[in-house]
Simulated scan of single mutants.
Amino acid sequence: MRSRLPLVVACGVALLAGCARRTPEVATVTPPTILVPPPAPKPKPPQGAAPNLVIPATTPDGGYATLNRGLSPDATLWHLRAALNVAALQCNIGDPAGVAAYNRLLKVHATRFAAAFKALEAEYKRGGGDWQDRFDDAMTRVYNYFAQPPVRDAFCARALPMLTQVADMPAGGLDAVAAPNIEALDQPFVDFYRAYDRYRADLSTWTAAQPPVLTVDPQILTTSTDVTAH
């Protein structure tokens, strides 16, 4: 009789092969795409101004302590003359109409301007000391104030029409309009200072939101032999 053992063994091997553990399939999970918003741009000063500009302090009424506040009537008139002089020289310089209007202004109101100048000098003399230097410095600041580049366009938009208007006024009529006119000419500067304060606040917020940056002094790194452990 023929033995059946090899057949049994063969079947056993086949069964073992069928019972072998299969390697489980591992599911591949694609991580979600996280959209990182781009960093906010660094705030820039308004009207192309310098980033470290010194501006007048604020006042309790919400304005700014410009050099056109709290003036005497004579100082107000002289500041108006200075503002319109800057307008004639720096606003629309290709059009000679501004200079012509300013020359008419000086001619028609020469007597009143001369009186205002003497009265303004007297104000500084009463302050004692080297009043002439203080006076000259103050007048330079007045002209430089109205010539500030960031405010030029807004200032010129108000000053040129005003120059034509006051140049055609009869003698003796300037005092009635000097105070409101100087306030109107000062407003573009107040608006600029307010925008500059907003820029500084925005810059402070932006700076606080930036991640810290670690810096190493290369001189210390290459020369120090100290070893520290924590």
Rank of each mutant, 00 (worst) to 15 (best):
A110C: 02
V190C: 00
R194K: 13
R198P: 07
A17H: 02
P149E: 11
F135L: 13
P188A: 06
A83Q: 07
A122Y: 08
G128N: 06
A208P: 01
F146C: 04
R22P: 04
L106E: 15
L71T: 01
A229T: 12
S3F: 01
P41Y: 04
C11F: 09
Y193C: 12
E123K: 04
A208W: 00
T30N: 08
Y143P: 01
L67C: 03
D202F: 02
F146T: 05
V54E: 11
F146R: 03
F192A: 10
R158I: 06
G62W: 10
D95R: 07
D217F: 11
F155R: 09
R81T: 04
V216N: 06
R134M: 09
Q132N: 09
V213Y: 08
P218S: 11
G62S: 09
E25F: 13
W131E: 04
G63T: 03
Q148W: 08
V99Y: 05
K118Y: 09
D137E: 07
G98F: 01
A157D: 08
G62F: 10
I220D: 10
D175V: 08
A209S: 10
V8R: 09
K44D: 03
I93P: 07
P96C: 00
M162N: 10
E123T: 03
F189T: 05
G48N: 13
